[in-house]
Design a protein around this nucleic acid. Structure first.
Lengths: 230, 230
DNA sequence: ACCTGAACACCGTTCAAGT
DNA sequence: ACCTGAACACCGTTCAAGT
């Protein structure tokens, strides 16, 4: 895990010559396409370079290292969300909408969320998103301390659940989840009575949507409990 | 990300001959020591082999692949927690205690939590932990559906926060967090008014303990809201 | 300034061969 | 059954050299 502060935006000509195919943007484009196609494990400096028909060394003229490239990918998906106008009447639903948007935005790129986990995105888009999330919570008249923690907690939830769901989303993951179900069902009932009693949903996997919404509800109503009583 | 079902425990001699240094256990020991010393990135089949004074190929007689080794590491730390006797009077505090135990147990091994994220640990110890966590929530008379989701949600929180904190725990991470603080403080106030108003704690980093406890409180009281009113 | 080939120091895993 | 050396197909990154 390494860390990258955003680089100040480059001056740059408005448009690269048609012959030139390398730029920060084109590199990020290519990288995202690779992640979309094969997941984060398929992403390497070499695979990106190959997609751009160069050698890996060429990338280093535009990008400091792989960590910076990952940060740029996260930044790309952290921007591009619709941001609600804070409405004191509907702040909880608005807040949920933002968390959903982040979550699904990540899931749209396979297991890219894994690269977002220890990260603190600081680009334009990510900061705007965060600023707005805070605004929505303030519209709900939550105390500053709660807002400050909440705007970490909610994205953490969005990212962590995206990681988990992505891990079980591909074919191999689905097979594993199925095997888990069978394994648990065959467990000796006298040794794990509560696990068996609560049943299948007690061990990860399907019903991801429902599970995600449940956690989201717990979190947002838990935060709301710190606000003025309605 | 790959998945590993637990192997049935080996018969195994009680004790390897003194000359023999390879076994599942000794491999896990060595791997854990490497993670403790240098973090997850320092762990490779080769580094483990070197610590055991063999070549990497020798490990494959005892461990299917690196993913299985990681699963064994997770299993090792998922076991070895003190489990409370479910007490209907104190179930919320007991639940918190279990989440704290998991969280700190992971953090004791640097960024090992990163390997636990998409994972569903299925070993003896992990299942006992999960069974007990369910028992505690049932002692609180939460509905089955809430229990089933809750016993995923709470470990997810323990693991995700451990990932995050570990990422900022080493020297490089601390430096980065410091840089973030400065960067945010210098942000144009008219563009990110809410972010600036809420201030420093609104962007990751220090006060990790307080932050963790806050989220834990939100989650557990959020779950408790589904139970009988007290 | 940007791009390149070649090289360095690593990976995980396999496989034929040894004991 | 367990262990080994050597090899295969990869990594990220650097660096001198080209344009």
């Amino acid at each position: 895990m390494a860390f990258v502060l955003p680089q100040p935006p480059r001056k740059g000509r408005a448009r690269p010559e048609p012959g030139t195919r390398l730029s920060r943007e084109s590199i990020v484009d290519a990288a995202l396409a690779i992640v979309d196609a094969g997941g984060l494990d398929a992403l390497s400096m070499r695979s990106v370079a190959q997609a751009l028909r160069t050698g890996p060394a060429s990338l280093y003229a535009h990008v400091a290292d792989k960590d910076e490239l990952l940060a740029l990918l996260i930044e790309r998906v952290a921007g591009g969300h619709d941001l609600p106008d804070p409405d004191p009447e509907h702040w909880q639903e608005q807040l949920k909408g933002m968390v959903r948007s982040l979550h699904h935005g990540l899931l749209a790129h396979r297991d890219l969320a894994r690269a977002a986990l220890g990260t603190i995105p600081l680009g334009e888009g990510a900061l705007r998103f965060r600023d707005r999330m805070i605004a929505v919570m303030r519209a709900g008249r939550l105390p500053d301390r709660v807002v400050a923690y909440g705007c970490d907690l909610l994205p953490l939830y969005a990212v962590a659940t995206a990681c988990e769901q992505a891990a079980h989303a591909d074919e191999e993951g689905a097979r594993f989840v199925e095997a888990v179900r069978a394994y648990v069902a065959a467990l000796p009932g006298d040794r794990f009575p509560h696990l068996l009693a609560v049943g299948a949903p007690a061990l990860g996997g399907a019903e991801d949507g429902e599970r995600f919404e449940f956690g989201l509800d717990v979190l947002v109503s838990g935060l709301a409990a710190y606000g003025p009583r309605t």
